[in-house]
Amino acid sequence: MTHSTAVPTKPWAKKPIDYLRNLSFFLVAILSAYVVVAITPMKGKLGYAFTFFVAYAFITSLFALVSLGIPAAKDAFIKSFVALGAVMTVIPIVSILGTVLKNGLPGIHLGLFTHDMSMATPTDPIENGGLLHAITGTLTLVLLALIMSVPLGILTALYLTEIRGKFSGPIRFLVQAMSGVPSIVAGLFILSAVLYPIAKNYSGLMGALALTILMIPTVARTSEEVLLLIPNDLREAGTALGGTQWRTVAMIVLPAARSGLITAMILGVARIAGETAPILLLTGGGDKVNPNAFSGPLGSLPYYIWKSFNAGSPEAITRAWAGLLVLVLIILILFTLARTLSSRNVARR
């Protein structure tokens, strides 16, 4: 038995000198941005960002040209544009989150989660009243919409992928058209078709009905795409084992698509959780926690935010920002939950 003296190395890995060089390029680019802004008429954040980008792209490309030649220089140049695209996509999101955090935090206090606004008006000091009615209202609306739209959406997707009936074409077209329906149209439809002639009263259910209309196409289309990814082999194997189509779909196709279907649900929730227009028309937006979603006005976060901004006083506007922060946090929590749930299922395979 001979002993090998070889040690594992990574000749392709970056060395400290490379990191140092990149850092210096970065610093030089920042410095030149300052210099350019100082000596030219360009002003403001945009000027800095623009000159920094140009300088960084120029320096890295030049270095690549000198050390590795023209193809490498082109590569470095394109790379900086790709990075620019990625950064520019993230900027608005980060900026929104930052603004919401900055303006919302002063309005956050524990009482928000234990009190509602039945004993306070938006112009009261922030310590009075809270968001409880809005948070419970939003969760109620989302839950109701979820209960109604997920079965409908998944059944639609199953019709399109498993049954492939005569009406697949028209139904697919209509579902796609439905996903473009403006939310105010869904709200007005429920208002004129259900609320005025039948229910005659504001309630959470009315809002949830409108949200369901908005949510079904998202759930149906995402589920359809997920189900199409399930290999046909599995369906054939299930049928060849003596399963009826329904047993095969329920026992094999749906479990195999489980993580994707959860994603479809969450995308649907994200589509509707912050929806405002139909809520304004249909729920009546009460200031008191309403445990009954089927009768009486139901508060919700979007409604609360809209109402507080309209009140106009500094306290009311702080309330609105706090409401925004809570809404964003709820959606973030839902997303994270869905991601971990679906990735756990994938890992189990």
Binding site: P231, D233, L234, E236, A237, G238, A240, I252, P255, A256, R258, R349
Partner: peptide, 11 residues
């Protein structure tokens, strides 16, 4: 029936 490609149920 046994198919050409092995197709155990993933779930």
């Amino acid at each position: 029936m046994v198919f050409q490609k092995p197709n155990p149920f993933p779930s």
